[in-house]
């Protein structure tokens, strides 16, 4: 029984420019990890490398029970077990909440089967997810008629409908106000804790990261420069994370040094 996701020596290059450099990272079952870093540090790339929306140049992924990701089939299984939440929520605005959340079930059915209404199991699961983000009364409302916070909750419900082992959230609160941000993040964290889902969430706000992250990863210029609990996150380290010039010193953190929560 493998209880963690391991990234081993991951490198990502776009042409000549290096987006991620020798990333080593473990994320344990049920852990809520927050990713910090300035724009362009590689936060999105790291998230999208895990489900390989961005191809990785070299390195190895070891995904919970699936083990090493070797081929297309493994990748498809990894994606089925990985829910993704986007900054711009990436929903079909003219479809209803229910229809959008049901797309989280697509990976579990063939094309032909998915043209017909999905089985009752999937429909009830989708509604259950909608209920958990407190939007059941909006289930038949078109997404474009919802507020930003509600739309992001639909995004969470869609990710949840996959019954995921892992949720990747790419700046899920970047376009929300502080109050709604708290709502969305605490909802996300509660659900992850209850279902023992691991989460990797990139954020812009340090205070949010400190409040919600079981662990914080600091990313700068494609490298991990901090990996630890929030109370270890000193001003010095923050300066390092958000430094604009490429760091010359090799930062050495391995997941073994991290105390599990």
């Amino acid at each position: 029984m493998n209880n963690k996701l391991s990234l081993k020596n991951i490198n990502v290059k776009y042409g000549e420019s290096i987006a991620l450099k020798s990333i080593n990272l473990d994320i344990y079952k049920g852990e809520f990890v927050v990713l910090l870093g300035s724009s362009g540090a590689g936060k999105s790339t790291l998230l999208r490398t895990i489900n390989q929306l961005n191809p990785l140049t070299s390195g190895e992924l070891d995904f919970f029970d699936l083990g090493k990701i070797r081929n297309k089939k493994d990748l498809q299984n990894l994606r089925k077990k990985t829910g993704m939440i986007f900054q711009q929520h990436q929903l079909i605005e003219r479809n209803t909440v229910f229809q959008n959340v049901l797309t989280g079930r697509l990976g579990f059915h063939s094309l032909f089967r998915s043209i017909l209404p999905l089985p009752k199991f999937d429909q009830e699961l989708a509604l259950d997810c909608i209920d958990r983000v407190s939007l059941l009364d909006k289930a038949l409302v078109k997404v474009k008629e919802l507020s930003g916070g509600q739309q992001q909750r639909v995004g969470i419900a869609r990710a949840l409908a996959q019954n995921p082992s892992l949720i990747l959230a790419d700046e899920p609160i970047a376009s929300l106000d502080p109050k709604t941000s708290h709502q969305v993040l605490s909802m996300l964290k509660d659900i992850c804790k209850k279902d023992n889902i691991s989460a990797l969430t990139s954020l812009h706000q340090v205070d949010f990261a400190k409040e919600y992250g079981d662990r914080i990863i600091g990313l700068s210029h494609g490298k991990i420069v901090f990996n630890g609990k929030s109370d270890q996150l000193s001003d010095e380290i923050l300066k390092n994370i958000y430094s604009s010039s490429p760091i010359t010193e090799e930062a050495n953190f391995t997941s073994n040094e991290v105390v599990m929560v």
Binding site: F98, K120, Q123, E124, L127, D128, L136, L140
Partner: peptide, 9 residues
């Protein structure tokens, strides 16, 4: 509580 929604759908 899902019945009505499923019916409409």
């Amino acid at each position: 509580k899902f019945k009505r929604i499923l019916e409409v759908e």
